[in-house]
């Protein structure tokens, strides 16, 4: 399951979706909003996505993960809009028969999302704002 959403991410419904009798391991990664970056206090993050393309790119990543590992089920959910400190920005969940594949697939999915999926975040500080990674 893949989704972009402006609503808070519901962890427990993702967990229920991942449960299947063949799964011996279910791995989660949550990306959450941290209160600082490079010694500056972060107030909030604004997430923006090119929706249709972001979903396509996330689907490619999920498909590749399913080729590389024995993934029984997966969930990828990414938030958009304004997120406050502590809020969940992204959830990755992977169910596999054994734990090694679950760890590896989860890691692959989040690492690749950060490289290819057209989603952008702006950090807002008390004294300014910056689009992350955008300028030299």
């Amino acid at each position: 399951m893949i989704a972009l959403t402006a609503d808070p991410i519901d962890f427990s419904s993702a967990y229920h979706y991942l449960q299947t009798d063949e799964a011996g391991a279910i791995d989660f990664f949550f990306g959450v909003v941290r209160n600082n970056t490079q010694k500056r206090d972060v107030q909030q993050l604004d997430y923006e996505a090119y929706g249709p393309m972001a979903v396509r790119e996330m689907q490619k990543i999920a498909d590749e993960a399913c080729r590389r590992w024995n993934v029984l089920r997966y969930v990828i959910i990414h938030r958009t809009g304004v997120l406050r400190i502590g809020e969940m920005a992204v959830l990755i969940g992977v169910a596999t028969p054994h734990r090694d594949a679950a760890f590896e697939a989860t890691r692959y999915i989040i690492d690749t999302i950060k490289q290819t999926v057209p989603i952008w975040k702006k950090e807002r500080f008390t004294d300014g704002e910056v689009w992350v990674n955008a300028t030299p």
């Binding site: 990306g31 997430y47 996505a49 090119y50 393309m53 972001a54 990414h78 920005a89 992204v90 989040i110 999302i113 950060k114 490289q115 290819t116 999926v117 057209p118 989603i119 952008w120 975040k121 689009w131 992350v132 990674n133 955008a134």
Partner: peptide, 9 residues
Amino acid sequence: ALIPPVSGG
């Protein structure tokens, strides 16, 4: 669409 450096996650 223009795609500046992405920063999701």
